[in-house]
Design a protein around this nucleic acid. Sequence first.
DNA 1: CCTACCGATCGGTAGG
DNA 2: CCTACCGATCGGTAGG
Lengths: 190, 190
Amino acid sequence: MSNSLKKQVIQEAAATLFRDRGYAATSMRDLAKAVHLQASSLYNHISSKQEILANICFQNAHRFLEGLDKIEAENIDPLSKTEALIQLHLIIATEDVTSITSFNDEWRHLEEPHLSKFIALRKKYENRFKLIIQQGIKEGVFKDINSTIILNTLLSSIRWVYDWYKPDGKQSIEQVGDVVCELLLGGLKK
Amino acid sequence: MSNSLKKQVIQEAAATLFRDRGYAATSMRDLAKAVHLQASSLYNHISSKQEILANICFQNAHRFLEGLDKIEAENIDPLSKTEALIQLHLIIATEDVTSITSFNDEWRHLEEPHLSKFIALRKKYENRFKLIIQQGIKEGVFKDINSTIILNTLLSSIRWVYDWYKPDGKQSIEQVGDVVCELLLGGLKK
DNA sequence: CCTACCGATCGGTAGG
DNA sequence: CCTACCGATCGGTAGG
């Protein structure tokens, strides 16, 4: 197995462990066992436990920001953009459930300077999302509700899917997405 | 200070630390420092780190179940019950933000037999909540949407308030609650 | 990739 | 409530 491929395997095993037990409760010996190595051998592929977490967090942060870039560039109204963003969250979630869950829950274990950088990226994402919502309010498609509350409720309401969704379930993620959109946007639309 | 009062102080300090750093990343020495004791002295008041977590989790679980008891007993329609449940979550959240946050995020660090007991309590709560939603669908007040998706979206969408709400904010929790109700129930109502 | 090992820290106990 | 201390485990390094 190539070195970079092995690194990938370690990263994925770490994401699973971080999701299941949390970052702090996962030891490098747990991780080593998961990939059939001695703990010390991990350090031929990664430089520290912290680096693994940082990779998980920033990889996912960039996936969200890239998705947002595309949606912003599209020539569609704020309602369609909001719908597209909800679907983006669900698509990213299903592409790599374990990674996204540990990204959601474990970023707070980032150390500086990673932590500040991560929070800044998230803030940027949220502000751009909020701008789309505010545009929707301005254009009269959305109710005139505090846009921070709308944003937080939208972002938060999608999160259960990460914990809950299993690819072998009876419902496709698109179906779940449509229902979630109907539920959330139904109350938001004027 | 009485013994039971000191125990209360320790529990609250622990809830704050668990919320800020997580259960696994909080050491008994951290906790001891927060209450101006030596680590060993904590054990005059509590029996283990695990016991503290179990107390936090079960205290909050019972607050939710008691609230649900009352709401179920009221002679009101499913829509009003759902509204009352959303407000219940927000009220409990604001009464004791730190405790509820570590209850939400740290229960998975419970060990057996606590863990199974806790999951069973939560399942019971969710099933009874779901029954109210299903009643609303049957009576034609709610759209005929998969009740599990509705339940999860409702429960999940409220969670950001725990992380976000500060009592010194500009908005009262009732205002936030009204907005969240409008947003969520607006899409749910037929 | 391994064996051997480091200093630091963990939850908790003994004994007063 | 403290000092002193236990065995276990932590992330990580040295050296091959």
